[in-house]
């Protein structure tokens, strides 16, 4: 019994997912927004008709509303030396032992994140998270003898 579980585990950990970079420089560069709500939907939406066109950008504060709720937002840039990628899997695997492939479907260098009603600050999780790559460099950079 134990042997079976082990074999199974091995094969699922043995599978790899290839990241097809393709021509990243030529990839689509759409506007990207991170919203303060969970939208139970994956797929097309009239973002520019209803949302982007209604965004107001005044005095360093961006405001808009979504479903009747007031949002306040801010644009953030990817950390230096980092690029935003949207990965897409065109064919879902039928089992977790199969090798998979994801491709870069679009690229972004900055995005706008939105808070529900509260003005964006440096204490927001998204902004704080941007400190990670720099710190990772310190933790993982090589140390010289």
């Amino acid at each position: 019994m134990r042997w079976i579980t082990k074999r199974f585990k091995m094969s699922s950990n043995g599978s790899v997912t290839t990241l097809q970079l393709g021509l990243v420089a030529q990839a689509d560069k759409p506007p990207v927004h991170l919203l303060p709500c969970e939208i139970e939907h994956d797929g097309p939406a009239e973002v520019s008709r209803y949302f982007t066109s209604a965004v107001k950008n005044q005095k360093h504060e961006m405001t808009v509303s979504f479903r009747g709720r007031g949002l306040k937002g801010q644009e953030v840039s990817c950390p230096h030396g980092y690029t935003g990628l949207v990965l897409k899997e065109d064919h879902k695997p039928t089992s977790d032992q199969e090798d998979r492939t994801v491709r870069v479907s679009s690229v972004f260098h900055r995005f706008t994140y939105w808070n529900l009603e509260t003005p964006p600050t440096s204490d927001d999780g998204v902004v704080m998270g941007m400190a990670w790559p720099d710190l990772a460099e310190a933790i993982h950079g090589s140390v010289d003898d």
Partner: peptide, 21 residues
């Protein structure tokens, strides 16, 4: 609109709008 609901012209807080949404 299935995602956005309505333009800002509509009062989302009205039960009529809420029910449809």
């Amino acid at each position: 609109d299935p995602v956005f609901g309505y333009p800002q012209f509509v009062r989302f807080s009205w039960s009529t709008a809420k029910t449809i949404l």
